[in-house]
Amino acid sequence: AVSDRLIGRKGVVMEAISPQNSGLVKVDGETWRATSGTVLDVGEEVSVKAIEGVKLVVEKLE
């Protein structure tokens, strides 16, 4: 699937994400809805860990 190529890629949070609410991330110039187990603020760099349906699962870049 086209989304599989995104796993491991870096992105930037465009709309804040929390465990309760999905947000938006931009990866390779495309905007995706994303979820995370932690709070991520706009502008934070993330990496794509998995894909669930049409949402990316991301975590903060260390």
Rank of each mutant, 00 (worst) to 15 (best):
1 A>E: 15
1 A>Y: 04
1 A>W: 03
1 A>S: 13
4 D>R: 04
4 D>H: 10
4 D>W: 02
5 R>H: 12
5 R>C: 11
5 R>E: 15
5 R>I: 12
6 L>E: 02
6 L>K: 03
6 L>N: 03
7 I>L: 11
7 I>K: 05
7 I>M: 08
7 I>V: 11
8 G>D: 04
8 G>Y: 03
8 G>L: 03
8 G>F: 03
8 G>W: 02
9 R>K: 14
9 R>Y: 10
9 R>I: 04
10 K>A: 09
10 K>Q: 11
10 K>C: 07
11 G>V: 03
12 V>Q: 10
14 M>K: 08
14 M>C: 06
14 M>G: 04
14 M>D: 05
14 M>F: 08
15 E>W: 05
15 E>H: 07
16 A>Y: 09
16 A>P: 14
16 A>V: 10
17 I>G: 02
17 I>F: 03
17 I>C: 05
17 I>E: 02
18 S>D: 11
18 S>N: 12
19 P>R: 06
19 P>F: 08
20 Q>A: 13
20 Q>L: 14
21 N>G: 12
21 N>Q: 12
21 N>L: 14
21 N>S: 12
22 S>E: 14
22 S>N: 12
22 S>T: 09
23 G>V: 02
23 G>C: 02
23 G>A: 02
24 L>T: 13
25 V>T: 03
25 V>I: 07
26 K>Y: 15
26 K>V: 09
26 K>P: 00
27 V>K: 01
27 V>E: 00
27 V>W: 02
27 V>L: 07
28 D>V: 07
28 D>E: 14
28 D>A: 08
29 G>F: 12
29 G>T: 08
29 G>W: 09
30 E>K: 04
30 E>G: 06
30 E>N: 04
31 T>G: 06
32 W>N: 03
32 W>C: 05
33 R>M: 12
34 A>G: 05
34 A>Y: 02
35 T>C: 05
35 T>D: 12
35 T>L: 12
35 T>N: 07
35 T>E: 11
35 T>A: 11
35 T>W: 08
35 T>G: 08
36 S>D: 01
36 S>F: 01
36 S>N: 02
37 G>T: 11
38 T>L: 11
39 V>C: 06
39 V>D: 14
39 V>E: 10
40 L>W: 03
40 L>T: 03
41 D>R: 11
42 V>N: 06
42 V>T: 08
42 V>W: 04
42 V>E: 07
43 G>K: 13
43 G>A: 10
43 G>Y: 09
43 G>C: 07
43 G>H: 09
43 G>D: 10
44 E>F: 11
44 E>W: 13
45 E>W: 10
45 E>K: 11
45 E>D: 10
46 V>S: 02
46 V>I: 15
46 V>F: 03
46 V>G: 02
47 S>P: 01
47 S>G: 10
48 V>T: 02
48 V>E: 00
48 V>K: 00
48 V>C: 04
48 V>M: 02
49 K>P: 01
49 K>I: 11
49 K>M: 09
49 K>D: 03
50 A>G: 15
50 A>H: 07
53 G>H: 06
53 G>A: 05
54 V>R: 04
54 V>Y: 09
54 V>I: 10
55 K>N: 14
55 K>E: 15
56 L>Y: 02
56 L>A: 03
56 L>M: 07
56 L>C: 04
57 V>Q: 06
57 V>E: 05
58 V>L: 03
58 V>S: 01
58 V>H: 00
58 V>I: 03
59 E>F: 09
59 E>V: 15
59 E>Y: 09
59 E>G: 08
60 K>S: 08
60 K>N: 04
61 L>C: 05
62 E>P: 08
62 E>F: 13
62 E>A: 15
62 E>I: 15
62 E>Q: 13
62 E>W: 12
